[in-house]
Computed example of a mutant assay.
Amino acid sequence: MKSLLPDFEATRQFGMALGRSLPPGTVILLQGDLGAGKTTLVQGIAEGLGISESVESPTFTLINEYFAGRIPLYHLDLYRLEPEEAEALHLESYWDGLERDLGIVAIEWAERLQYKPENYLQICLSYQDNGREIEVMGTGDLLDWPLEN
């Protein structure tokens, strides 16, 4: 599914729709250039989950965990890592380990992952002359996942 997001607010609203409708255990792999809207989308997801605390990109901390919403949100940012460094963190524990089925995992710069989950939503954000284009593709159990607005 491709869609045009004309501005910041549209990106946040799209994220809110995701946050309201995604089931626990969903992994979202986010891709896009710097400033394409990945963090804005995750902020919307958090808002849709009912998380009221400030959501910032974990560029330096790598992982932020939010537990105050409908379900937990695990927000990861791999921008500063090489693929080998990302692998050494054993991030698969977020989708294969104890956190499995408990929350939503949103990973910025997911192209740096060497091991991906079996089921995930891949969201690519790209600049367009009239805003941003978002492309959402599901794999495995999320292949035909419908976005509920």
Rank of each mutant, 00 (worst) to 15 (best):
L30Q: 01
E47V: 07
I51M: 08
E133R: 09
D141N: 13
L102N: 08
G19P: 04
P83K: 10
G15T: 00
D77Q: 06
E148T: 15
Q43T: 05
Q122L: 15
D141Q: 12
A110G: 07
A68L: 13
P23K: 08
W109M: 12
L34S: 01
R70Y: 01
S57G: 11
G103P: 01
R20K: 13
L102G: 11
S3M: 13
E118S: 15
S93W: 09
F60G: 12
L29T: 12
S93Q: 09
A68E: 10
P24N: 04
P58M: 02
L91R: 02
A36D: 03
A46G: 12
L89D: 13
E47C: 03
V136W: 11
E135W: 11
L121C: 03
H90D: 15
S126Y: 12
L142D: 02
T59R: 06
L121P: 05
E111D: 14
D7F: 15
L91V: 10
Y74F: 11
Q114R: 13
P146H: 03
T59Q: 04
M137V: 14
T11D: 04
R132M: 06
K38N: 07
V27L: 14
L113Y: 06
M16G: 00
G19Q: 02
R132D: 10
A46S: 13
L125T: 04
Y127G: 07
Y94K: 02
Y79V: 15
F8Q: 14
Y66A: 00
L34W: 01
Q122S: 10
P83C: 08
Y74P: 00
L22A: 06
S3T: 14
M137D: 09
V55W: 01
T39P: 01
P24H: 07
I45W: 08
D144W: 08
K38T: 11
V136E: 02
N130A: 14
L5A: 11
Q43V: 06
D144P: 06
L29V: 14
L121I: 03
I28R: 00
Y79N: 07
Y79F: 14
G37P: 05
T61R: 13
V27S: 08
E111L: 06
G44H: 05
L5N: 04
M137R: 07
P72D: 02
K116Y: 07
T139G: 12
Y94E: 14
E56K: 15
R132T: 10
A46D: 06
L89K: 11
Y120C: 03
G25S: 14
